[in-house]
């Protein structure tokens, strides 16, 4: 099976704003290394999860993938096309805007409050010349509203976003993301702002587009419980890098990297008896700054298993199971 998206050694650095004098004196610029050498592949009809805590670089990776940010280094392939250096015009000319879409986190901020739902959904169709007649436009909009379960669609089409609940708004955000029938969608924390009782429906909805149209997803989240629910494979990010990757169930039930182990041990389990028995693996201190990440393995100053080599040499990705890799010296075969 061929990947629909493949990312190779992706880096995104943001220059730190410093005064001119500082730059002259210090001689070099400093950078926030938001994403620092990330590689992964996403296959057709697959949901690949990027999970990590605040500042791990997961959202930046997603933004680079949809062309909202330019990579500093590295390559991104969509099918066989290298899309990493394309400018916005080329994105549009090659039809990538239609094929690659993004669903944002906050349904309150990502919809124009002055536009009716109909206009919000019509805009991408018109801008991308995806419809020829008014009838076609109407039909597409009503069908998408139905697909996101806003039924009857004509009752929702002429409302404004503020007249809808959070869950309904997120359905509109999804309808807009899906209206051009994309092949690949980046969904950045699509349920984290929603109440518990509606999260599952939104996840099931995303899944239905995969099943019906074969959409592939990059699902970005900090919540491993939803990642397990919807994802196929996962990459765990720490300080701009993927430290462990593999099938979701395998990584969650059998984590190998000390960071993944700590992360998973901290996740509350909705079972009081189990929850009170489980042990939490604590990492020392707090996540270091991405401006000067630690040398060697980035986790070593916090890692309970740190060895000599960890502070000196960055560990490679090591095979720890079927399709399961971790970047940790503990697993190097001598």
């Amino acid at each position: 099976m061929k990947p629909i998206v493949s990312v190779k050694n992706l880096k995104k650095y943001y220059p730190l704003k410093k005064g001119l004098l500082y730059t002259i004196l210090m001689g070099e610029k400093e950078y926030v290394k938001a994403v620092d050498g990330v590689s992964f592949e996403i296959y057709e009809k697959e949901i690949f999860v990027l999970a990590g805590e605040t500042g791990s670089g997961k959202t930046t990776t997603g933004k680079v993938l949809v062309g909202l940010e330019k990579p500093t280094e590295g390559e991104i392939y969509f099918k066989d096309q290298n899309i990493s250096r394309l400018n916005p015009k080329e994105w549009k000319r090659k039809g990538l805007r239609r094929k690659i879409q993004m669903i944002f986190q906050d349904p309150y901020e990502s919809l124009n409050p002055r536009s009716k739902i109909y206009d919000i959904l019509a805009e991408p169709l018109i801008v991308n010349k995806a419809v020829e007649t008014r009838e076609e436009l109407d039909e597409k909009i009503m069908r998408k509203l139905e697909e996101v379960k806003l039924i009857p669609p004509d009752e929702f089409a002429f409302r404004y976003p503020h007249q809808l609940s959070g869950g309904q708004r997120q359905r509109i955000v999804i309808a807009r993301g899906m209206i051009l029938d994309p092949e690949f969608v980046v969904a950045d924390e699509p349920v984290s702002m929603l109440d518990v009782s509606i999260r599952i429906d939104i996840l099931n909805l995303l899944n239905s587009f995969r099943e019906k149209y074969g959409v592939s997803y990059l699902y970005i989240t900090h919540d491993l419980a939803t990642a397990r629910y919807i994802g196929d494979r996962i990459g765990i990010m720490y300080l701009g890098q993927i430290v462990e990757t593999g099938p979701v169930e395998e990584v969650i039930q059998n984590p190998k990297h000390p960071y993944t182990q700590a992360l998973i041990s901290a996740i509350p389990i909705p079972d009081p008896e189990y929850a009170r028995r489980k042990e939490i693996i604590e990492l020392k201190g707090e996540i270091p700054s991405p401006i000067n990440p630690p040398k060697g393995c980035r986790l070593h100053p916090r890692c309970p298993f740190a060895m000599d080599i960890c502070s000196k040499k960055e560990p490679p990705m090591i095979e720890v199971g079927r399709g399961h890799q971790a970047s940790c010296w503990l697993y190097e075969k001598i």
């Binding site: 509606i198 599952i200 429906d201 099931n204 491993l224 939803t226 397990r228 629910y229 969650i252 389990i269």
Partner: peptide, 23 residues
């Protein structure tokens, strides 16, 4: 019951969950 059956977990069997109807 609805609330508790709508929360995904990292432990236990993996199954399809359903949200609560309405708002």
């Amino acid at each position: 019951q609805g609330l508790l059956s709508a929360i995904p977990s990292i432990k236990g069997p993996k199954r399809r969950l359903e949200g609560m109807p309405g708002e």
